[in-house]
Design a protein around this nucleic acid. Structure first.
Lengths: 219, 219
DNA sequence: TACTTGTCTTGATAAATGTCAAGAGCGCCT
DNA sequence: AGGCGCTCTTGACATTTATCAAGACAAGTA
């Protein structure tokens, strides 16, 4: 993108450090800033009355929540830090004006947004077409690849949150783990040992059109 | 947008008429065309092995499946006509090149994509935060508003598909209807009579951040 | 009319998931 | 050490949902 536009953006933006467990964005607020997670871990979640559900957990570098900024609309999800995090906050107005001025920036925004869209679609397919155990198996298979396919996986999030993300209660997740244990998955706290990655893939009914192994949310 | 670019797009595009129950787009195919539903009804669905799930049902005028075209990637969903439909098919390459050339077109594509994204997010919240009966109630409340809030709703899709869209089996949907029947919702085939729209809203735990009453997928 | 065909409903049963309660294990603090 | 507070697990049970089987009903057809 053009240097001038880039400077405009960065001048308006500011990098902020948040402690852990802080709500950065509240569902229903208007989208004043585009957030970019630079360092740390952020959880996106949604609520209805007293119910709460984790939508996804982000790692750097990820934007959130882009669509609300582009539409100048209300956030549909809340965001809270899980660990101490650094977040770049770009005023929504600047994002929109630079988008209009700089075609290259606009293109990468479009690409990012399209990736996010496809991510959510994959997620919805995952939810509707798989059982709880299958979702857990596919999550583990993903993590296994991302962490080097060494036969070991370290869970990056606590099991309560993992359950919520996978659409199941903690108790249910616990039982899903014990079902997998019978099929060669050893669980010791957050340390998972995988006897056969192929078995995992089979349990999950692995499908390239749901499971995106290439990177974060691209493709 | 610029007239010249508009002409470029339309010259490359062609309007095609499809009979009912025809698969227009197959999950996993590469995104050769941007589809725009001009007339008729189209169902987007996804499969995993033998399982199938309806993701959404589109009415005119709607694009599908935009994100795959923008990313030059594989379709994540299949599309089939439910009724005889007219679909405008624009070669993906032209969409991408006109996007680069015409800022106004690019802006509206971004806006459409962002709307679609938010639609899927709402959908996912609906799935994860509501029970089956609640999802049915919210669907009926939506249709009630869209059809003029006259106390009558005519189901636009068959119940099997409705069930799949709401994430439940036909039997389950049937039972959900009979639960609602006890609360003032009369069901006669595809004709629904709503005694009190407020009751429906209450059952569904209506929430503006899930339920988008303004138009199709805007906001 | 009789016969098909498909959709929808209902019942019986099985499987999956949620809820409640209790307890194990672990780190943290005094 | 002892006593929190926390996460996680497990068991018993209730609820929800899925599956299988059968039948009701309406529309279309011979």
């Amino acid at each position: 993108m053009e240097e001038e536009c880039f400077d405009d953006l960065l001048n308006a933006a500011f990098l902020q450090r948040f402690p852990e467990r802080v709500t950065v964005v509240q569902e229903g607020d208007s989208a004043d800033f585009l957030h970019v997670l630079i360092d740390g871990t952020v959880e996106l979640f949604a609520t209805l009355d007293k119910r709460e559900s984790t939508m996804t957990v982000l790692s750097p570098v990820s934007t959130f929540i882009l669509a609300a900024v582009l539409k100048d609309a209300l956030y549909l999800m809340s965001a809270r830090t899980r660990t101490t995090s650094q977040i770049l906050m770009i005023p929504a107005q600047n994002v929109r004006s630079v988008m209009a001025a700089d075609a290259a920036f606009a293109r990468s925004i479009v690409s990012e947004l399209a990736s996010c869209y496809r991510g959510v679609v994959r997620n919805q397919k995952n939810l509707k077409l798989r059982t709880g155990v299958e979702r857990l198996a596919s999550y583990l298979a993903h993590q296994h690849v991302r962490q080097g396919a060494s036969g070991k996986v370290k869970l990056q999030i606590d099991k309560k949150t993992l359950g919520s993300m996978l659409g199941m209660t903690p108790e249910n997740l616990s039982r899903a783990f014990s079902i997998l244990r019978k099929k060669g998955i050893a669980v010791d706290g957050s340390e998972i040992t995988i006897e056969s990655a192929d078995a995992l893939v089979e349990i999950a009914r692995f499908a390239p059109l749901i499971d995106n192994l290439s990177g974060r949310s691209s493709e």
